[in-house]
Design a protein around this nucleic acid. Structure first.
Length: 608
RNA sequence: UGCCCGAUGGUGUAACGGUAGCACAACAGACUCUGAAUCUGUUUGUCAUGGUUCAAAUCCAUGUCGGGCAACCA
């Protein structure tokens, strides 16, 4: 950023890569690479498909895929789908779309997938039966779409057969048992560090009962499979934790095949192992699970190197909520229009708002990776978005709250085409023409009848430049019966346009405008932050902090070239904000305000 | 309560026993046909107390504060 080299406009085909960050996890990986510990670094991003991905997941995605990218590795996308009653195929699909979008043009070649329907390979390794599910990677999203070979994410549910077999092995080892305690009793026994009365069942009885659990002989909640570790361990997760529970429920991937489902702790480490993951990176709340993660893998006499778990602090961002439960509540109670409402911190919401994948990635890199639970200031996100959009957005003129201006010395019926620059930050973006005529619209805020000090815009008897056009002077204010200003009558210095005799004349202010006759109307959705306080869920009732003005919808007057706006481009309405075309733009133009420009004047005006 | 983890300006981070640096924010100025961007400058920090050491943000001890876990969720 402070590097002057970056200011040279880059070929847009070669995006400037964010500098490779350094953090404690990357340090560990780098050390492992240096010592040649693994043939290839292999990470994974393992969301449960029970909600939409949010910006916190983006941090995790950028970490896991970033490591794969920086160390020549692979990162598997895996659905952690061990609880069928909470999950849905809708979420599986949205997760894939969001991951593809965030990875596009950056790390899509590091995305580990598998052939559709493929089960783990079963073979003998060092005399032991082993399961392995290798990734297919190195293809771009478009290659994948055009290929005859269909690829799909990994699913923990792909391994239910193997995980079941591992459970049987544990029973045979005497390291797991079937427990008939009720949930409440189990809870009480574990809390008090007391052994279950079923702890010493014979291997044969455990095997029989577990087989019958699988066959669906017992109702939900009547029996579980438990690990036999230490009943009174200081770490609760070692007090004979649950490995399997009975759930008479169909699964979105495996249908009615299973009546028992593995718990997270049992499924996750084994899924990592089966996929050959080297670095299993998760958030801090799983720190206390790590001994169990290791215990399970070490108890199974596995053939290949074991994965290891590393933890980092999840993202908390000011002025928003991040938990799936709360986001779900916003959607279900229609407090927002959906998961992709541009005010939501979901990846699809942020995307719809107009933020680019590059900006979101830059943000993830800027905030760093630590084990400290801090709250990141939204201004960091906002700055990252502005920085990206400033570089790439097409400049356009649009008037959000119009007031009519008549240039009295400009001939009626005359129209001239003036040159406008598409992006001063990017000379190769070229220019365009804007029609100028006698009747214009300017921004209502850009005129003050009684101007405050240092007001550089239009005022009675004052001069201002119309961007790309003439210097005008306000001669007369027209009001209606109620005293509202309806029109301004101005004269123009007709020699002051670009290339004209007085074009070098300096006036303090420059304002935007559109020709009244040529302007096109657009619906403009002005989004603001969803909550009014930095920590909406600090006092337990986040909904009372909802910002009642988080959305304002207006009709704007836009320069005619905006008729051709497209979904890929980003726009800066000069002096106002950045905008992106919304998907609702079918019969009319709809723009979402991504983020405002910084406004030093508004700040100064507010202070005085 | 038990166990685990953490603490560097307002915020987020770097420094791996040897000059406390970066980004955001804030403030001031320069420039400006965007009160944007850009440029220049300024303000602000090692949780506390001991110890080890020529030297401590860094190592040790104690304390304080904060977070997490204690689901047949992940």
């Amino acid at each position: 950023m402070s590097n002057p080299i970056e200011k040279i406009p880059a070929d847009p085909a070669v995006p400037v890569a964010p500098p490779a960050p350094s953090d404690f996890i990357r340090d560990i990986v780098a050390a492992h690479v240096a010592e040649g510990r693994y043939p290839k670094i292999h990470t994974r991003f393992p969301p449960e498909p029970n909600g939409y991905l949010h910006i916190g997941h983006a941090k995790s995605i950028c970490l896991n895929f970033g490591i794969a990218r920086e160390f020549g590795g692979v990162c598997n996308l895996r659905m952690d789908d061990t609880n069928p009653t909470k999950e849905d195929i809708e979420y599986v699909e949205s997760i894939q779309a969001d991951v593809n979008w965030l990875l596009g043009g950056w790390a899509e070649d590091r995305l580990g997938l598998k052939h559709a329907g493929k089960a783990p390979e079963e073979k003998m390794v060092e005399g032991k039966k082993d399961f392995f599910q290798p990734p297919v990677f190195g293809t771009s999203e478009s290659e994948r779409q055009h290929s005859a070979i269909k690829l799909e994410p990994f699913y923990a549910s792909d391994y239910f057969d193997q995980i079941y077999e591992f459970a049987v092995a544990l029973i045979k080892n005497g390291k797991a048992f079937v427990c008939d305690l009720t949930p409440d009793q189990t809870d009480e026994f574990r809390r008090n560090g007391k052994p279950s009365p079923f702890r010493d069942r014979s291997v044969a009885e455990n095997l029989d009962l577990f087989t019958r659990m699988k066959a669906g002989e017992f109702p939900d909640g009547t029996r579980v499979l438990r690990a036999k570790i230490i009943v009174d361990a200081p770490n609760i997760w070692l007090r004979d934790p649950l490995l399997y529970r009975i759930k008479t429920a169909d699964h979105h991937q495996t249908g009615a095949k299973w009546r028992i489902y593995p718990m997270y702790d049992f499924a996750h480490c084994l899924s990592d192992y089966i996929e050959g993951i080297t670095h299993s990176i998760c958030t801090l709340e799983f720190e206390v699970h790590r001994p169990l993660y290791d215990w399970i893998l070490e108890s199974l006499d596995l053939a290949r190197p074991l994965p290891h778990q590393y933890e980092f602090a999840r993202l908390s961002l000011g002025y928003t909520v991040m938990s799936k439960r709360k986001l779900m509540q916003l959607v279900e109670e229609n407090l927002v229009t959906g998961w992709d409402d541009p005010r939501m911190p979901t990846i699809c919401g942020i995307r719809r708002r107009g933020v680019t994948a590059q900006a979101l990635r830059n943000f993830a890199y800027n905030i760093g990776i630590t084990k400290y639970n801090g709250i990141t200031d939204v201004s960091v996100l906002e700055h990252t978005i502005r920085e990206d959009l400033n570089k790439h957005a097409q400049r356009r003129l649009a008037v959000l709250r119009p007031i009519k201006v008549v240039i009295t010395n400009y001939p009626e019926g005359k129209v001239e085409e003036l040159n406008a620059i598409n992006n001063p930050e990017d000379p190769i973006s070229g220019g365009r023409k804007m029609p100028f005529a006698r009747e214009l619209f300017i921004e209502r805020d850009d005129f003050q009848e009684i101007p405050p000090p240092k007001f550089f815009r239009l005022k009675p008897g004052g001069e201002v430049r119309l961007k790309y056009a003439f210097i005008i002077k306000c001669e007369e204010i027209i009001k209606d019966a109620a005293g509202n200003i309806t029109e301004l009558r101005c004269t123009a210095d007709l020699d002051s346009k670009m290339g004209g005799a007085t074009s070098a004349r300096k006036v303090k202010g420059t304002i935007h405008w559109v020709s009244a006759a040529h302007a096109v109307d657009a619906e403009v959705r002005l989004y603001d932050r969803l909550f009014t306080v930095p920590e909406p869920d600090a006092d337990g009732d986040f909904k009372k902090h909802l910002n009642p003005h988080s959305l304002e919808v207006i009709t704007a007057k836009c320069e005619p070239s905006l008729k051709d706006a497209n979904f890929e481009e980003r726009y800066q309405f000069e002096r106002l904000a950045y905008f992106a075309l919304d998907k609702d733009s079918a019969s009319k133009l709809v723009f979402n305000r991504t983020i405002t420009l910084k406004d030093a004047w508004a700040k100064a005006a507010q202070k005085s």
